[in-house]
Amino acid sequence: MPDQEDVVDLLLAQHARIEELFAAVLAGTGEARRESFHELVRLLAVHETAEEEIVHPLARRSIDAGDDVVEARLAEERAAKELLAELHDIGPDAPSFDSRIVVLRDAVLAHATYEERYEFPQLRHSVDADRLRGAARAVRAAEAVAPTRPHPGVESASANLLAGPAVAVFDRLRDAARDAMRH
């Protein structure tokens, strides 16, 4: 099935998972909450990078008023990344975490909704199905280098990466995505 999946399907599944993780973070406590938050940070990094490097360029070239649509989405992504970096820095145990993650959640949900209404249907309409499937493969290739979800007690390179500045995750993913698109 994954080979048949196009990039819109893949991003929709990620949007669905992101929603679930926001709900899990907000409802969870202690270690469960920290784990959900780590998974959320990782997935958002993977997802936003894939969109910036692979999906938005495709949309810019292929859809009506693509530049305007994509610029609006990029501005939302920049704002969300700043919020995410702040949250990552203060951590899920900080007193202001709850109110701030709701702000991030609302920004991410609105961003995802705009994509699903104004960008994805146009992509499906204007871009060849093979190219959309190829873009899905590129996203998965980039995702493969992203740090995996850290398990408690297991110190790994990925856990270290997540422990560092969130920006490093984005940089590394961006390089991987560019790499995947060249192949």
């Binding site: 399907d9 929709l12 599944a13 949007h15 669905a16 929603e19 679930e20 709900a23 699903e116």
Partner: peptide, 8 residues
């Protein structure tokens, strides 16, 4: 078509 589950 939207990859969401009705449970949500």
């Amino acid at each position: 078509i939207e990859r969401r589950r009705a449970a949500k």
